[in-house]
Design a binder for these strands. Structure first.
Lengths: 207, 207
DNA sequence: TGCAACACTGACTGACCAGTCAATCGGGAG
DNA sequence: CTCCCGATTGACTGGTCAGTCAGTGTTGCA
C-alpha cells in the first residue's frame, strides 16, 4: 500500500511546495511541478484531480496539525502566556522546519483568501476561534483583562505572528535559531503584556 | 486638460477597483474592466500599458497617502499612543471610505507579495520603517520599554491592523462606525500597553 | 506463463485572454 | 467647411496552459 507507488504522490506534493514557493501558484504551470518532481505530466493528474487540489492538500495537511497544536495548548493547564507561547512556537518552528511550505500556506492560501482561501475560510477561522478560546478563559480566570474581546485578541496575536513570518519570507534574509527564539519571546511579551491586567507594579520604575 | 478626456482614466481605475475586489486580479479579464467602465476594450490600453499597471496605479495612489499620514503622525509632537492611534485611524477610515479599494490593496498587493508585491516591497517597507521610527523615539523618550525592537513592534502593530481588516473583508459582515471605532481603540490599547513600561498601576485613564 | 490492474507517459486539444492595430469618431483651430 | 490629432472602437492574433486520453511499462497473483 504505502510503497513506491503511493510515495510518488508525496514526491509530487513536495515538488509542488518548491514550485509554488518559487513561482507562485498562479504563475507556475502544472508541467513545472511534473518537471520538478521528475515525473510525466500526466502522472500529476493520476494522483490529483486539478492543480488546485494539490494546493488544497498541502494546506489541509499542515493546517490540521496546527489546529491540533492549538487545541493541545488550550487543554494544557498552563498559564495563558505559556499557552500562547506554545502556539507561537509551533508556527515559528513550522517555518524553521519547512520555510517553503509555510510561505506557500501563508502567501497562497491564508492571505490569498480571495481566490482560493474562501474554500478554507472555515478552517482558518477555526484557528482564530481556538486562540480566542484561550484568551476568553484567561479573562474568566482574571488573568487577562476584559476590555479587549477574545476575537480581537486572537486576530492581533495571529496577525503579529503572520506578519513576522511574512517579513522573513520576503526579506530573503536567512534567519537563525536566535532570531526565531527572539521573535517568539517578543510576540508573546508584546501581546500578552497588552492583554494582561496591569495591576502588578512595575519591576522597575526609576530610570 | 482634466476634462472628460482624462476623466475616462479615472472611470477605468474606479471600475478596476470594483472588478479586482469582486473577482480578484488574476481571475478577472481586462474585458471585465472595460465592460464595468462602459468603455471599449482597447481604450484600457490607451490609458494603461498593461493590466498590471492598473493595479500598480491604484496601489501607489493610496499607499503614498498613507506614507504621508504616517510621516505626519511622527512629526506631530503628540505622545506615541496618539501617534499610533492616528495611523490606525487613517487605515481604518480608509477602509470605511472605500472598502473595495482597501480589499484590493491588501489582498492583491500587500499580501500577494509573491507575484506582484515584490515590485512594491520597498514602499511597503517604508511604512514599517515609519512606524518603527515612532516606536524608536518613544523608547528613547522612555515612554516605551526597550526589550521589544522597533522593527518588531511595527510588524506587530501593522499586522494587527491588517488582520482586523482582513477579517472584515472576508467575513462579509457590514461593519458600522461603532465597530470601526472599537477596533481602533483595541488595537492601540493592546499593542501600546504591550509596548509601554508597566510602571503605572492605573486601571483606567481614558474611556 | 498469462493476464489483470494499476502506474506511468507525453502528445494533443480546446478554451481562454492579454495585448495589437487598423479603422472610425469628434471637436477645435485655421 | 476642412484638416488634424487625440479619443475611441472592437475584431483579431499569437501564445499559453489545464486537463484529456490512448497508449506503454510494471507488478503481482493465479
Amino acid at each position: 500500500m504505502t510503497t513506491a507507488a503511493t510515495e510518488k504522490r508525496r514526491v509530487i506534493l513536495d515538488a509542488a511546495v518548491r514550485v509554488f514557493a518559487r513561482q507562485g501558484f498562479h504563475t507556475c504551470r502544472v508541467s513545472d511541478i511534473a518537471d520538478e518532481a521528475g515525473v510525466a505530466y500526466g502522472l500529476v493528474y493520476h494522483y490529483f484531480s486539478s492543480k488546485e487540489q494539490i494546493l488544497d492538500t498541502l494546506f489541509l495537511e499542515r493546517w490540521d496539525v496546527m489546529l491540533q497544536a492549538i487545541a493541545e495548548a488550550d487543554a494544557s493547564g498552563r498559564p495563558p502566556r505559556q499557552k500562547l507561547y506554545a502556539i507561537a512556537s509551533f508556527i515559528i518552528d513550522s517555518y524553521r522546519h519547512d520555510p517553503e511550505l509555510m510561505k506557500v500556506i501563508i502567501v497562497e492560501v491564508t492571505r490569498a483568501a480571495n481566490t482560493f482561501g474562501l474554500t478554507h475560510l472555515e478552517k482558518i477561522r477555526d484557528a482564530y476561534a481556538g486562540i480566542a478560546a484561550i484568551v476568553a478563559r484567561a479573562q474568566d480566570d482574571g488573568e487577562f483583562r476584559s476590555e479587549i474581546t477574545p476575537e480581537f485578541a486572537a486576530q492581533a496575536f495571529y496577525g503579529a505572528v503572520e506578519q513576522v513570518l511574512t517579513g522573513w519570507i520576503f526579506d530573503s534574509v536567512t534567519v537563525g535559531q536566535p532570531d526565531l527564539d527572539r521573535a517568539k519571546s517578543m510576540i508573546v511579551e508584546t501581546i500578552c503584556s497588552g492583554l494582561e491586567r496591569h495591576a502588578r507594579t512595575a519591576p522597575d520604575e526609576s530610570d
